[in-house]
């Protein structure tokens, strides 16, 4: 069964129609590349799935169940995690603290509930090992590379046993070597059965990891097909409108 299904999703901001009748499915463990020109509606689509706001019309189904998210926490509880580039990371804290931010485990110490650093440390080691990332839980995030920061953000998704991870431009501002690192992380998630929706303007990155490519143009879905049946040239044509639909 599809882990995520969208039926006829539309969203308008006042007079602007950002999404227009978008339908798609995502399978467990599938990596979906979501592409489109600036303003095509990619971020809007991700925000609808993540519960930042409700669609103007249409239906969202998680594992076959219709859901109505009113706030991001609702989506999080349903197993949807968003990796917000640098936005959700505190540079002044350690990697482990960041992974557990807002969900710190505690233990009893006299009259106090104190943060269980040992547990956090052990869990973080385990999560980074699962991601095959060389990120040290005790290191401050500000001393880390872009790829390691992504690992921290993605480890958060593993911690909550997410079923779908949404990533908006995770490779936009990092070096080539780190891009490879992030793509590896995405493969690891997929291997654990977690679906990944990846928004990127970088064609080679998408084709390197995606099982399926979805193209939006002015709020409409113009293609949804297996990456192996498509090509960067075709997708470029679809994005610009040189090719009507595929």
């Amino acid at each position: 069964m599809s882990v995520l299904e969208l039926k006829n999703i539309s969203k308008n901001y006042g007079a602007i129609q950002a999404l227009n009748g978008v339908s798609l499915t995502v399978e467990p463990g599938e990596v979906v590349g979501l592409m489109g020109d600036n303003g095509a509606g990619k971020s809007t689509l991700v925000k609808v799935i993540a519960g930042n706001f409700a669609p103007s019309s249409g239906e969202v189904l998680i594992s076959g169940q219709t859901v109505n998210f009113h706030k991001p926490l609702d989506a999080q509880r349903a197993g949807i995690e968003v990796v917000y580039q640098d936005l959700a990371i505190c540079n002044n804290l350690s990697a482990a603290s960041n992974v557990f931010l807002g969900r710190e485990p505690t233990r009893q110490f006299g009259p106090f509930q104190i943060v269980d650093y040992k547990h956090m440390q052990n869990r973080a080691v385990e999560l980074f090992a699962r991601l095959k990332s060389e990120t040290r839980p005790r290191d401050l995030v500000k001393r880390m590379s872009g790829g390691q920061r992504q690992a921290v953000a993605i480890a958060r998704a593993l911690l909550t046993d997410a079923r779908i991870v949404l990533m908006d431009e995770p490779t936009a501002a990092i070096s080539v070597r780190q891009v490879a690192e992030v793509l590896n992380l995405i493969r690891q998630l997929s291997e654990q059965g977690i679906a990944v929706v990846l928004i990127s303007h970088r064609m080679p990155d998408v084709f390197e990891v995606a099982d399926k490519v979805i193209v939006l143009r002015r709020g409409q879905l113009v293609a949804s097909k297996n990456a192996s049946d498509s090509s960067p040239e075709e997708v470029t044509g679809l994005i610009t409108g040189a090719i009507e639909a595929a």
Partner: peptide, 19 residues
């Protein structure tokens, strides 16, 4: 303590993580 340092480090992150 963790939360107040998180807020000082990146308030938006603190909001997004549900603090």
């Amino acid at each position: 303590g963790q939360h107040l340092f998180a807020i000082g480090g990146n308030e938006q992150a603190a909001v997004l993580t549900g603090i």
